[in-house]
Amino acid sequence: MRATTSIFLVFAAGVAFSLLLLNNDGLLIQIWVNFADDVDFLIRQHIYLVVLSGGLAILIAVPMGVWLSRPYMRKFAEGAMQGLNVGTTVPTLAVLALSMSFLGIGVLPAIFALWIATLLPIVRNTYVGIREVPDFLIEAATGMGMTRTQILFRIELPNALYVIFAGIRTALAINVGTVPLAFLIGAGGLGELIFTGIALDNIEMMLAGAIPVALLAMLVDFIFLQIQTWSISRGVNPLR
């Protein structure tokens, strides 16, 4: 229900905004004519940054969260969570700035900063999701003769999956929202059009960047919402 409502709203907002711009001397058409090539080129860079930093973050954060949730890590895990909580409080622009001060400019420091900012919420949610699986389920699974590995893959992860996915969605929203800033440290992407447009007071150029960035963010969230809705067992999925 929430998902359908959101799609409708995005669509309605998009139409309203486009109408507004079209009335304004066919602005949208001008943007399209003048910036189609730039957008085409920059959006590829943009998506490259999202996919690489986001993908690496998911691939590393989930196992890290699982590892922190293991019983032998218990003493260390709470401290690590405190650290992660402070880490997620640090604004992403600061993360980018710090990354730039240590690694210089270019794609690498940008990917590194995006990766760190995306990593933290996923690690935290994976850890919390697994720790929230009730002890008695683990006891029942052990008592029925499951091995530690079987318990992890058949009980702990499936029951934590909803929370893990919530973490991934939050993390990707942060990621997609931060990628435009990557331009500032020389990694390209649609931020180039936005920031240059603001600096030059060129509204067309700025919108040529801002509109696709907003649409891309909604698209990514929408895709992951669908994955979250349909890939997680109905038994543990509040969305179904």
Binding site: F136, A140, V236
Partner: peptide, 11 residues
């Protein structure tokens, strides 16, 4: 077990 412990993710 007392809490029954059916696995919520499974049918």
């Amino acid at each position: 077990i007392q809490q029954i412990g059916l696995f919520p993710n499974m049918t």
